[in-house]
């Protein structure tokens, strides 16, 4: 009787310990970065002409988009955005590469993936080299890079070679991007902050403030310590008129799981300044935050 009981208890213990380690499936985050696959163009090149006349590039861009689709991730269509810009406006632009920047800005893409496809002709056969690079649209940080080559064939069917080249790299490319996403979720997104003073302001960074009579720059450091993700921020420099934080980390989601954008961080800082009796204005460009104290 005792034997059965102790065995039963032993098995029950195993079951409890085993099940306690299980974690329920994680809930899917609703807020995702927007991604746009764009063709690579050199400075002063006409992007529209290149895309319309280079079938290999179009195949490469489409195959890359397909790679994202296969992972259940929709991308912003570059050609649709290109069409949205009026012909007149595109023609007016002197520097064609700025058109790309404009499209990226108009699309609101957080990440853009630059794609290049280059035919390589040799005596032992033809192949295609594809180069893809993913960039954070705001900080310019490179998220993933891959170069892929198709096998060599005695063929002029470069479209098929392009497909093979992209097929050979897209999974590895997406997996590298995912590693970067995981790192971002773990360590927060990168932003920068500049705090300056308006012309009429009677304050500067050395002004003493509060009961402890700390310098304003020190008060700001204390606040940043408490309000950056994992208390991470790096001060590039501080002068009497300016405090530059070239890198700080912000969470992607707040405590309720809602998206936490740099604008929320700026609003939070402005509220704090208001409590100190200081009026300020803010300007947020992507992940660059500018605060001016009036």
């Amino acid at each position: 009787m005792n034997f059965r009981l102790s065995t039963l208890l032993g098995l029950l213990l195993f079951t409890i310990v085993g099940s306690a380690q299980e974690v329920s499936p994680t809930t899917t985050r609703k807020i995702q970065p927007t991604i746009m696959v764009v063709p690579f163009v050199r400075e002063n090149q006409d992007m529209r002409n290149i895309l319309e006349n280079d079938i290999n590039l179009r195949v490469a861009v489409t195959k890359m988009k397909e790679g994202f689709d296969n992972r259940g991730f929709s991308t912003v269509d570059f050609r649709a955005k290109l069409k949205q810009l009026s012909n007149d406006k595109a023609m007016e632009l002197e520097n064609q590469s700025s058109l790309k920047q404009e499209i990226i800005e108009l699309s609101g893409a957080d990440i853009y993936v630059e794609t290049e496809a280059k035919p390589v002709n040799t005596g032992s056969g033809n192949s295609i080299t594809v180069i893809v690079t993913a960039y954070d649209a705001y900080s310019g940080i490179s998220l993933a890079n891959k170069v892929g080559n198709s096998p060599k064939f005695y063929t002029d069917n470069y479209e098929k070679l392009t497909e093979k080249a992209v097929d050979g790299l897209v999974e590895d490319f997406l997996n590298t991007m995912q590693l970067k996403f995981d790192e971002m979720v773990e360590n927060g997104r990168i932003a920068s902050l500049n705090i300056t003073f308006g012309e009429g302001s009677s304050m500067d960074m050395d002004s003493e403030i509060g009961d402890e009579e700390k310098m304003f720059s020190e008060v700001m450091e204390d606040w940043l310590e408490e309000n950056t993700y994992k208390n991470y921020f790096h001060i590039q420099g501080v002068t009497a008129t300016k405090l530059i934080i070239d890198e700080l980390r912000l969470p992607f989601f707040d405590e309720e799981g809602k998206a936490y954008r740099p604008t929320k961080f700026a609003a939070s800082l402005r509220n704090y300044l208001k409590k100190l009796g200081l009026e300020s204005t803010r300007d947020v460009q992507g992940s660059k935050i500018f605060i001016t104290i009036n």
Partner: peptide, 20 residues
Amino acid sequence: NVDALRRDMEQQGVVRKFGL
């Protein structure tokens, strides 16, 4: 079949879906 394996792992919450 790597795609199917990955999808299964995503559905079961073992790995994160592509993205954040």
